[in-house]
Design a protein around this nucleic acid. Sequence first.
DNA 1: CGCTTGGTTGATGTCTGTCAATTTTTGTGG
DNA 2: CCACAAAAATTGACAGACATCAACCAAGCG
Lengths: 230, 230
Amino acid sequence: MIDRELVEVLPILQGLDATALDRLLTHAVQRNYAKGAAVFQQGEDATHFFLLLRGRLKVLQVTADGQQFIVRVVNPGDLFGVAMAIGRTQYPGTPVAAVDSIALAWPMTMMHDILQRSPTLAINTMQMIGQRLDAAHERLREMSTHDVEGRVAHAVIRLAREAGVISGAEIRIDFPVSRQDIAEMTGTTLHTVSRILSHWETKGLVKGGRQLLVITDLPGLRRLAGEEND
Amino acid sequence: MIDRELVEVLPILQGLDATALDRLLTHAVQRNYAKGAAVFQQGEDATHFFLLLRGRLKVLQVTADGQQFIVRVVNPGDLFGVAMAIGRTQYPGTPVAAVDSIALAWPMTMMHDILQRSPTLAINTMQMIGQRLDAAHERLREMSTHDVEGRVAHAVIRLAREAGVISGAEIRIDFPVSRQDIAEMTGTTLHTVSRILSHWETKGLVKGGRQLLVITDLPGLRRLAGEEND
DNA sequence: CGCTTGGTTGATGTCTGTCAATTTTTGTGG
DNA sequence: CCACAAAAATTGACAGACATCAACCAAGCG
């Protein structure tokens, strides 16, 4: 059975009445994904949409010539695989479990009905997509105007905000992140990322390790990213 | 009075019944924008949302340190300024008329009601935002994996698709596009764009001119962009 | 305890941003 | 209608950031 308390607090489902929530949950199927497993493959027919309950996913896209890049990180509470919401019948990317993960799945055929019946849910979903659009534009602006170091700084700050666990003065990224991963988020190579992080470590901004990233001076990073706010 | 025939064919309004369309149109105000005029300013409170009827807009964003970049081009039939759809109260960018343009405007307060009352319209709007998200991801992937020449090729191909007028074997971009504009779409400088276009001209791929761009060999460009499809 | 995966660091080449000078086009006011 | 100014584009020289190539080290894991 699905943990109702866990689900009903999610922002995406706010404004939904009890019966509608019940109907939604009775149709959900819970699925587990071991670290490294793909929930579905880019290009597959979009048969289901998902809600991440626990864990962390990296959404990858592969270009025609085989290059890979990371579209975004899926955090607990996030919807993913909502191909219909962008008017597609195939999944645009491949979500891979960065740690053991648990998700709820619904048949995509339900999505249209759900949205038709609940304008509130439709608006929530729209705004969620809109926020992703905003984030994508922010990244585009960065890639247009900042050098690699600035982009890596932004990527690390984003990771800290989305998946950071505070312990004392430090913030640890809560899932395994390799240099390669950061490179694929910022459009550079793992070599350059490694050099930058090494340099930062000598300046006391971050601490590194194998698939480990700890921020020790967030304000310093922000200054380096070129934006005092954020 | 607003030209009803012009509006009712728009994809974004499909599935809307006649009375709903009427109610919508009675609340719309038509506005004209001379070439170079801004419809609104980035950061302003989002009081209205818009539908472009005629003309062409460039949506600009300015970074904290004053650098500019072009988020997208608004074509006739496109909604813009739908800040509410992304859960914002301020406009994220500045739309500037590239040519004399005409738009319909509605008060933003109407948006929530409209979407609440018409699930179809809510879904349409959601899918429109979703398509923009898809396009943004495509651009991100490009900026991560392609060199400048490839990105410029993609940008030109997109312009041809969105705003291209076919005359014989040639495709002319239907509004003034400067080298600077293309640079701001692809995250490079006008100098590099100029060099690339000059080079392409010698290869017979495009023809240039002051704020003018004509594609003479689209298949050749596609090959150069690295994707046979698209 | 070896193998695999991830990380570090150096050497080198090149793409492309920066600086600079010049030309071409357009628009405007006398 | 011409002259002049402003805007856009072109092209060259140069430097620097970063990708590529390469070698080596560290840490999990079976």
